[in-house]
Every structure is written in structure tokens, then in C-alpha cells.
Simulated assay, not measured.
Amino acid sequence: MKRKAEALTQSAAELFGLSGRKLLLGEGNFSFSWALCQLTTGAELTSSCFESCEQHRQRFQASEAREQQLRGRGVRVLHGVDATDLKTLPSDVITPFDRIIFQFPQHPERNKIHLNRELLAAFLKQSEALLAEKGEVVVSLLRGQGGTPFELEERRPKDTWQVQELAMEAGLLLVRVTSFPEAELSTLGYQRTGFRGQGLHGSTKEVYQERGFNSEGSLTHCFARPGDGVTAACPIERRHDISFWVVDPKFSEDLLRRSFPEEFCPQVTLLDEYRSPQDGREARTYRLSVSSSTCCITQAARKPPEISCQPVQ
């Protein structure tokens, strides 16, 4: 049985950073922003929510009072910002950001995993474009959602949000996974609260109630662009089986291995070989195993390069 990785334990200050320019997306009752602004020293915080100002007042208690508190501490508060389309940020918002933080993202149709993946994928791609050179994207997810080896419970990949895969497609490496420091944040005023529709049909389907959620076992995932000193927390191994007719008498497994970029260090395993009794042609089947702790190996990157061979028909 594959051994699970162990999530780090970091203080909120270490995890979210003491200084720098930070963008907080998808805020609910703004209590996370309030807790964070008490930790930071000389940081420039921009806190945003998806709802319009009027919607936020209706959905969250003490919304206006909390916003006034934040503005009193120098935090810029924005409404109507879509984390999947950061062009909704006002044009005068200064970029790039040292931290882009999204706590417990959730699609309105919360039980449809593919929609949550789409939301997360769009957010990560948008965030990568606004990230400072040494910046990080930080996402907290509920227990089991992320689907990394750090989860306390093991789920089938299709039952998770596959956060590491989505990040690589956005050009980001998962560099750190920590336990969400809820206890520490709670002492600073953080309240684990979201909202949920009270009814699903008719006149009540747009009525919302503020309520908490179970965050036991939640993990915070930190992502960064590949670069000097950036190493993946748990490199993913890609496997791809190929079958082909050997047409070059100089072909060798080493040639196949060297046809990949050096940083991928592929492992080449011969699975099967066949020689045609009619014309003597030789066919081979190989398994290519590729992993890297410093590069984003996307679905496109896993395809084998051009080599001296013809696919077996």
C-alpha cells in the first residue's frame, strides 16, 4: 500500500505571509480577511467577494460593519469580483500579487465535481497571470477534495477535485501542503461561515441562510511557478504506453530516452516485442514513465516525441 505524505503544520503568518501585496478572493463574511489583516505587517490587502454589495448585505450578517472594520485597517474591499475571471477586478488594482488566496472555493452546484474542477481550473489559470515572480497561489479545500497524497482519507481520483493536475495545466507546481490553521485564525476573529440556499424550487430558491460547515481535516495548498529553488511537494508520475514498428536499424532504448527533455528523466520499460513472419519487421511496445519535481508535466507534455518509428496499425 502506498504510504501517504504528511501535511506540514505552519502558523498562519508563515502560511499566508506577513508582508507583500495580497489578493483575497471568494470571501464570505470577510472574517478571514479580518484575521489576516491583524497578522500582516506592512502588507497591502485587497479583499473581494463574488456578490454585489446589496447581495452581500442580504446574505451575511454584520456585512457592512465588518467591511468598515477592514477599511479602517487599510484593506481595500471589493464586490462583484469573479475568481474565474479576474478581469472583473477594477482597472486601478495594482498587480502583480505576492499571494493570491482563495479559501474553500465552491461552485453553487456543490455536489457536481466536474463543475468544481472547472471553477478551480479557471481560478488557477487566471491567478498565474497575476502572480509575482516569487509569489504563491494559496487554496484551502475541505477534507478529501484536493486528491493529493496528503489527504487523511483516500478517494478515487475521479471523486476528487484533482487540484495538483489542474495546477500543472495552469503552469503551477504544488510546492507545499499544510493543515489549515483554523484554531489560530479563530482567535483573531475568523468564523467558518458560508451560505446555502434554503429552498431548491419556486419562490424560495434564491433565499439564502448563513451557516457553518465541517472543516475537520481541511488542507491548505500552496502553488508557485517553476523556477530556481521551486520543488514539487509530491511529483506526479506520468505513464504512457506506445507500440511501433522499428524502421531505423540504429534505434535503441537510449535513443528513445534521450528524445525527451533532460529534466524529465524518463524510465523506459520494454513490455512486448514481435517480429512479423511475413516480412521480418520488428514491433515493440514500451512503457514510458516520466516525472519531474521542477517542471509542470501537463497532459500535452506526456505525449511521446517524434522518433524513428511507425505506429503499429
Rank of each mutant, 00 (worst) to 15 (best):
G26F: 05
D82C: 13
H107P: 04
R287E: 11
F16C: 05
R281S: 11
G280I: 01
S252H: 03
A301N: 11
V93M: 07
E165C: 05
T285R: 14
A300P: 07
Q55G: 12
T88D: 05
A35K: 12
K205P: 04
R59Q: 08
L185V: 09
P235F: 03
W161T: 00
I297A: 07
G280W: 03
S291F: 06
G189A: 06
R59W: 03
T298D: 01
L36E: 12
R66M: 14
T40V: 08
R155V: 01
K112E: 10
A5G: 13
L271S: 09
C222N: 00
L142S: 14
I242S: 00
D279L: 12
L130Y: 00
E182Q: 15
R117H: 03
L8Y: 01
K2S: 14
V246E: 10
V93S: 10
V207D: 04
R76I: 04
I101L: 13
M168A: 08
G144W: 00
S308P: 03
A167K: 12
P305R: 13
P249F: 07
E109P: 01
Q310K: 14
W34L: 15
L256H: 06
D159M: 12
A283Y: 03
I242Q: 06
M1C: 11
P311W: 02
F30K: 12
L45K: 14
T269M: 09
S31Y: 01
K4H: 09
T231M: 11
I236R: 15
R225F: 02
G80R: 10
D92C: 10
A224V: 02
E282V: 02
T269C: 08
A43F: 01
D254F: 14
A35P: 07
L131T: 06
R239V: 09
K87N: 09
Q198G: 08
P226R: 10
L255T: 01
I236E: 15
F104M: 02
R117Q: 12
R225V: 08
A12M: 12
